[in-house]
Design a protein around this nucleic acid. Structure first.
Length: 272
DNA sequence: TATAGTGTTATCGG
DNA sequence: ACCGATAACACTAT
């Protein structure tokens, strides 16, 4: 389920198969997924336009849209957030998946479109679907992207240091704060802190300079490897978030509890 | 049947 | 005003 790497995969799906088709229908009738818009608002704004580019910052995506005719002004951006369970699927005119599919469902639910909460239909008969069982995803026009912190893949050492140099929040809470750094979710956060050997509950203001450096290095390498691998499930720590697990580095028992409001696993020895 | 959950945000208290 | 903790959101899986 979506953290930055999965969202990047979804972005690539749209980039490969969702751009440049004229939009001939929009189903925006799901009032939860399309909040704060009323049914029909997004539809009216997009009919006759094309998606021309797709961007991502952290876990948020947005598509630029074309004018309706030649030399008409561009339309609003279409923002998409996958929430906890969303995925993007592109189908052909027969409704068969040509992009998306099981890219993080690992073989399950392929072709199961029961939970489609938003869709675009293109002039060629194909469609873009947002499938989201839990309905915590969001689709909206001109989403406020500026409130997000720097993308985790692009954050500079200077920006990172500023974010992790002061405050009393647990390191984990700060890693999850999308205003501070965008894209890290619960699993990536645990992986990052395990790799950097830092206790998740440490107040950020108490981190040494060396620890902040290790943290930054761990963020970059974890996020990059998860993006390359196609999702957070390729991260080593994910497999050790189970009762009775032992640290794959030192063999000590993995501890778990709640930090920053989320279930957290850490090595009882190296991250004491 | 009860509970946890890979995300975000409004609200409350210090 | 800032900072951090918590509940709520809607639904599925275990």
């Amino acid at each position: 389920m979506p953290e930055l790497p999965e969202v990047e995969t979804a972005r690539e799906v749209i980039q490969r198969a969702g751009l440049d088709h004229v939009i001939v229908d929009v189903d925006d009738s799901d009032t939860y997924e399309c909040r704060p818009h009323k049914p029909g608002e997004i539809r009216a704004a997009l009919l006759g336009r094309r998606l021309t580019a797709v961007h991502r910052r952290g876990k948020s995506m947005w598509c630029d849209t074309s004018g309706i005719g030649e030399s008409e002004p561009a339309g609003p951006a279409l923002g998409i957030h996958l929430g906890m369970s969303g995925k993007i699927v592109i189908t052909d005119r027969q409704g068969n998946e040509i992009e998306g599919g099981d890219y993080w469902e690992r073989g399950r639910d392929l072709g199961d479109h029961r939970y489609t909460r938003f869709s675009l239909t293109f002039a060629d008969g194909g469609s873009l679907l947002l499938i989201d069982p839990r309905r915590l995803g969001r689709v909206r026009l001109d989403p406020p992207v500026d409130v997000l912190g720097p993308d985790a893949l692009k954050i500079t050492p200077r920006q990172f240091r500023a974010t992790f140099s002061k405050g009393t929040a647990p390191v984990k809470a700060r890693l999850l704060d999308q205003h501070a750094i965008a894209g890290i979710g619960n699993l990536l956060a645990d992986q990052v802190m395990w790799q950097a050997k830092i206790n998740p509950a440490r107040p950020v203001g108490e981190l040494t300079s060396a620890e902040v450096s290790r943290l930054l290095k761990a963020v970059k390498s974890s996020v990059q490897s998860a993006v390359s691998g196609g999702g957070v499930h390729v991260l080593p720590m994910v497999a050790f978030r189970v009762r009775g697990a032992r640290c794959p580095r030192c063999g000590a028992p993995m501890a778990h509890g709640t930090v920053g409001g989320r279930t957290t696993w850490w090595c009882s020895r190296e991250q004491a």
